[in-house]
Design a protein around this nucleic acid. Structure first.
Lengths: 248, 248
DNA sequence: TCTATAAAATGACATGGATCAAGTGTCATA
DNA sequence: TATGACACTTGATCCATGTCATTTTATAGA
């Protein structure tokens, strides 16, 4: 009996169950009962690890399920034939991505790690099946999908209507609030991505990112040292995007 | 008996059932059996009509369900506080929109008619409930959501990486293929939206749209007369976007 | 038919960011 | 600690596109 318990413990440990995962309140299981969470848990592939700049999938790959970041970070992107990357999103611990493959069972974009990264896969077939019996999970999934869409829509507003200044300010505030949401400092953090990736996300040139960081610093809004960001004057930063989004 | 039949007929007619709707193969019921379609049908609100430039919803409104265009056209958009519109999508007959409200039960964007428009509403609660028992419907909804995401992602690539020429060419080809999909000519059609809206969708100025249309015409690619578009040289138009998207 | 109003086109000019070309800093490995 | 590779910064220049002003065309209503 003791032996069995130990095996269960071990299995739980290896599996890094949702229940024991510090990110479960941010991730898909959010809002599920312990019982429901454990059912979901049984279907999740145990964490996989990848080093920096490793590819998770690329266009044409079979869509197998949703991805959840445990640690590290991932970028998803499309490319022009000439090679330029349009980065669609940065995905930080606790966040789920790779939902767009649902259209036809094939991936449409690239997914690459920003640094050493650990992630889980939630197999789509099983998630779909569980949705039949767990209305709350269905609700979670729909909420997640809606959230993704709204993120994309804000991103469209940014790319279509904002100046380079506004874009970078919006970006910093966005990252800041996501760190805050995970319980970290919203004003002092390390960017997990390169200048090149920031540029690719914001639809501007790398050089512009450099110059704007310098300009923000000269205005006393932030202090930037390589990837370390310290927001000195959050109000000023907020003011820079004040005209960008309707708040209700 | 005859009377009852007539009532049923009348009711069906008023309701403009999915089964009798010429767009059902393009719309959400696509792929459902007749029986399943009729179940879905019973929960769909009969078509409503709106004249041009009428608002369907705005940010903050309660999210009640998905919208399906029967005739006419709808734009969804976000705005900056300064008033500029970033148009997120144009929605033509047979297309479903308004899915982003799923995140928190509130609309996040504006939806306005481009012309006299008829549309159906698929109440979310009931759709959710039906998804429990009709796996095929669940599959349809997920496919639809995936499609929306991929549309948004292509739009992000367009806004982030394409020149004004490429954007307008991509736009024309996109509209063209959607007309084709509905069984209309892909090379001769009327644009349902204004220059202003095209500009708002492509993230460029109205004047640029005018100038580029003229330039395209001078190159013998299209003939444009107000809202009437005739694509003369589809190859040339395709070449303009050849470097924009990876095709697999 | 005339008039008012809005939509679209056109022209002149200005500029935000891209591009190109060096330079500098940082990190990993020998 | 040297060396190479790469990320980042900085400066100079240019151009695609925005902005502003005006004209033309289409549309709706009296």
């Amino acid at each position: 009996m003791q032996k069995i318990m130990n095996q269960v413990q071990l299995s739980k440990q290896l599996k890094v169950s949702c229940e024991s995962c510090s990110l479960s309140e941010l991730c898909l299981p959010r809002g599920l009962s312990t019982k429901e969470m454990n059912i979901l848990d049984d279907h999740i592939e145990r964490p996989r690890n990848l080093s920096q700049n490793a590819q998770l999938y690329q266009p044409g790959d079979k869509f197998t399920g949703f991805y959840a970041v445990r640690s590290g970070g991932v970028k998803t992107y499309l490319t022009k034939k000439t090679g330029e990357q349009q980065i669609l999103g940065f995905h930080l611990p606790g966040e789920v991505f790779g939902l767009d493959g649902m259209e036809n069972g094939k991936q449409r974009c690239y997914a690459t790690t920003l640094e050493n990264t650990s992630y889980c896969i939630l197999p789509y077939d099983q998630l779909d099946h569980l949705c039949e019996t767990i209305p709350e999970l269905r609700h979670q999934v729909c909420q997640l999908l809606g959230h993704e869409m709204n993120c994309d829509h804000s991103h469209l507003l940014l790319l279509g209507q904002q100046t380079a200044h506004e874009r970078l300010a919006t970006f910093l505030l966005n990252i800041s609030s996501r760190f805050k949401h995970r319980g970290f400092s919203p004003t002092s953090f390390m960017l997990p991505m390169s200048r090149h990736d920031i540029a690719g996300f914001l639809g501007i040139a790398v050089e512009t990112v450099s110059r704007l960081f310098k300009s923000f610093q000269e205005k006393g809004i932030v202090i930037i040292n390589r990837k370390q960001v310290d927001i000195i004057n959050l109000d000023k930063l907020n003011n820079m995007v004040a005209n960008c989004e309707e708040t209700d």
